Simulated scan of single mutants.
Amino acid sequence: MTGFATRTGSAGLFSWAWDIRSVNGRGLDLRLRVPDWIDGLEAGLRKKLAGVAVRGNVTCTLRVTREEEGGALEVNETQLDLLLAALHRIEARAMDAGVSLAPSKATDIVTMRGVLEQSASQDDTSALCAAILADADAVLSDFAAMRAQEGSTLSRVLESRLAEVERLTVEAAALAEARKDDMARALRENMARVLDNADGLDEGRLAQELALLAVKADVTEEIDRLGAHVSTARALLAEGGPVGRKLDFLTQEFNREANTLCAKAQNTDLTRVGLDLKAVIDQIREQVQNVE
């Protein structure tokens, strides 16, 4: 089921921006793009996302930034030692060469790159992680609300398609009833034709074969099952919750009955209705892919 939500938040020196979206998928595929330097954040978000979505490809992007602050200045001892050693070697070589150098001043040394730096020690991220996870509830609520709105729209679309299946099923039942006399007359004519052209043929055996053909052409069971499937689909839609997988399976059953109906039709009008049923059922199948 499709869905989309964005939100911004902040805590202390940190600010962040959420972007959560989902598209159709057979199962649940969570893809998180979050800062890996915040311990426990990804695991916490996965748990929360799994609580609001059970189907679809869900992408959650979180961008975290930190404001610049005036931290304490610190001397990089390692860099200073390397620099002093280099200055000592330079002064010694200069003296050996008879070159006079001006005395070095501390103010000159601290301006050299890497000697004096602003403290930027890594903070404990547990508090930041907790703040972000708490803020996630709001954006996930927006995300779930949009998916619920999408689901409501899909429910109405599916109900309209189910009503069309129901209408076509009623029409198929009427056509199947109307063709009974025609089928019976055709069977009698075929039986008489065979008997007229076959000497010594067992009439009882022939009658049994023709009766078997009549049974195989009967579509009563297919029509009954189509009606039952419509009732089941409506019950699932009314049930709410994640019913996408069940509806997906049910559309396969719908399609199976429609295929059998077409195969048994032996009637132009009934075949037309069967093909119309297949078209509507295919529309249902496409929409069901969007249902969680």
Rank of each mutant, 00 (worst) to 15 (best):
M1G: 15
M1P: 11
M1E: 15
T2C: 04
G3M: 00
A11Y: 14
A11S: 11
G12P: 07
L13M: 05
L13V: 14
S15G: 15
S22D: 06
G25V: 05
D29L: 01
R31C: 02
V34C: 07
D36S: 15
I38H: 11
L45D: 02
K48N: 05
K48V: 03
A53K: 02
A53S: 08
R55Q: 04
G56H: 00
N57D: 09
N57S: 15
R63M: 12
G71H: 04
Q79I: 14
L83I: 10
A85H: 07
R89Q: 08
I90W: 02
I90V: 07
E91A: 15
E91L: 01
M95G: 04
S100L: 10
L101W: 11
R113W: 10
V115K: 00
A120C: 02
L128D: 13
A130M: 05
A130R: 10
D135I: 03
V139Y: 02
A145N: 13
A145Y: 07
M146S: 08
R147N: 05
S155P: 09
R156T: 14
E159A: 07
R161A: 01
R161S: 02
E164H: 08
E166I: 01
R167D: 04
L168C: 07
A176T: 09
E177F: 13
D182V: 15
D182E: 11
M183L: 14
A186L: 03
L187F: 09
E189W: 00
N190K: 09
R193C: 05
R193W: 08
V194C: 03
V194G: 06
V194K: 00
L195V: 08
G200D: 06
L201T: 10
L206A: 09
L206E: 03
A207D: 11
E209V: 06
L210Y: 06
L212C: 03
L213A: 15
K216Q: 15
K216Y: 14
K216C: 12
A217I: 08
A217F: 13
E221Q: 13
E221G: 09
R225C: 13
L226V: 14
H229T: 07
V230Q: 01
V230M: 02
A233I: 05
L236V: 11
G244Q: 03
L247W: 12
L247S: 15
F249R: 00
L250E: 11
L250P: 12
T251G: 06
T251D: 01
Q252P: 07
F254G: 12
F254T: 11
A258I: 05
L261R: 06
C262L: 00
A263R: 01
D269R: 11
V273H: 09
G274T: 12
D276A: 08
K278E: 10
K278A: 06
A279V: 12
Q283E: 10
Q287K: 02
Q289R: 08
N290Q: 10
N290D: 10
V291H: 06
